[in-house]
Write a protein that binds this DNA or RNA. Structure first.
Lengths: 145, 145
DNA sequence: GGCGCTATCGGAAGTGCTTGCAGATAAGCT
DNA sequence: AGCTTATCTGCAAGCACTTCCGATAGCGCC
């Protein structure tokens, strides 16, 4: 039988540090923009790191569930991930070039809690995404016409 | 050959009113919640209306592009559509039972425009979703433990 | 250092949503 | 009624992602 004593119910889940995990973490660190799983796969491949696509999906999902990554569904169905601190913030995304700016919104936080409370909701989370055209892209478009 | 004179370049795009279009419009009107294409397909089927799934996708996409529908990508990859008045508002969704409450947030609107302007963004749109547990579900959960 | 347990990897196959295609259907005009 | 052509429809391809399961390789133990 097993030599492992199972009366240890509080034991840590044995997280292992592997080459693949480090590669993925490094790829995420190398840029603070949102990247898709496929992006990271391509990048690692190009860098010579041999990591399976499945592994990347698994890892990204795990990290996202652990709260270490921000998740954002694009309009094309792709899921984008991004390293995320513990602090809460929102994003201002340029729909032309994809540039992302982090913004904070105390008013929004207050508004969300107030509205939720008014309707009896508890344990509230919220998502705010502001999409627009950034200054340089707007200039570019204006110059075009 | 054709009796149609093609020197009429400004003619209307000949939109036809079909049974299927009316059925889809009716289905959308029957509820003000977000529905997926598949939902509508199932509903129409159950109602005896025979409408192809492809038609529903086409129609929904067309309506969305015409600005008559709100589009929202769910976390599971499904696209949800909803009849959209001209007025702008947001949603408070119960993560347990799915109940949806429409809310307004003038502060949020102001905040979004301000933040966007601060970073030089123009043509801004924004999405706000507040997710929580509604009063009755919270009670249910509390009674359980 | 060597060994075994098991978390993790990773290719292939599967899943579910969405869309392109080409022939069939029917709306609206004459 | 007859014709033109927008619209419908099922099929199957495309895709982003997940699941399966045998193979691989950390990490603790001896």
């Amino acid at each position: 039988m097993t030599a492992v004593s199972d009366d240890l119910e509080g034991r840590a889940p044995q997280e292992r540090s592997t080459r693949q995990k480090r590669a993925i973490a490094a790829a995420l660190d190398s840029s603070d923009a949102f990247r898709s799983a496929q992006d990271i796969y391509t990048e690692l491949r190009a860098r010579g790191e041999n990591v399976g696509l499945t592994t990347i999906y698994n890892q990204l999902r795990a990290l996202a569930e652990a709260g270490e990554l921000d998740v954002l569904r694009g309009d094309d169905g792709e899921t984008h991930y991004r390293r995320c601190g513990t602090e809460h913030h929102h994003h201002l995304v340029c729909s032309e070039c994809g540039r992302t700016v982090e913004v904070e919104g105390p008013e929004v936080e207050r508004w969300a809690s107030r509205v939720a409370a008014e309707h009896g909701f508890v344990e509230v989370a919220h998502t705010v995404e502001v999409l627009g055209t950034c200054a340089s892209c707007a200039r570019k478009k204006a110059a075009h016409s």
